[in-house]
């Protein structure tokens, strides 16, 4: 599996949770935001996007983001 760096632009996030839905379905077989490895919290004033320790940076969350709040960048070799 390719690994990516995931760039986040929280100011573009709408809180649609498509990323959490896709992530949880791939890794648990069920749509369950609480089990997702990406965590999104949106309020009127701010948005935070973070990843749990077991995130593999597979990029499925990016594939499902429609708002450009998540972007893939191939990991640079050291």
């Amino acid at each position: 599996m390719k690994r990516f760096l995931i760039e986040v632009r929280p100011e573009l996030c709408t809180g649609c949770l498509r990323c959490e839905l896709a992530c949880s379905e791939v890794y648990t077989g069920a749509f369950n935001p609480s089990a997702a490895r990406i965590k999104v919290q949106v309020s009127d004033n701010e948005c935070s996007i973070s990843f749990t320790e077991d995130c593999t940076y597979c990029g499925i969350c990016v594939d499902h983001c429609f708002y450009d709040a998540l972007k893939k960048r191939l990991e640079e070799k050291a």
Binding site: T14, G15, C16, L17, R18, L21, V42, D44, N45, Y67
Partner: peptide, 29 residues
């Protein structure tokens, strides 16, 4: 327009967060 909000799963969210930026009502969100 301060932020666009979407219902869960919606790729074309249309809820608005709006903020008055000037005048006596400045800051109303």
């Amino acid at each position: 327009k301060k932020r666009r909000l979407a219902c869960v799963s919606c790729p074309i969210g249309d809820k608005d967060v709006i903020e008055i930026k000037d005048g006596p009502l400045k800051g109303t969100v």
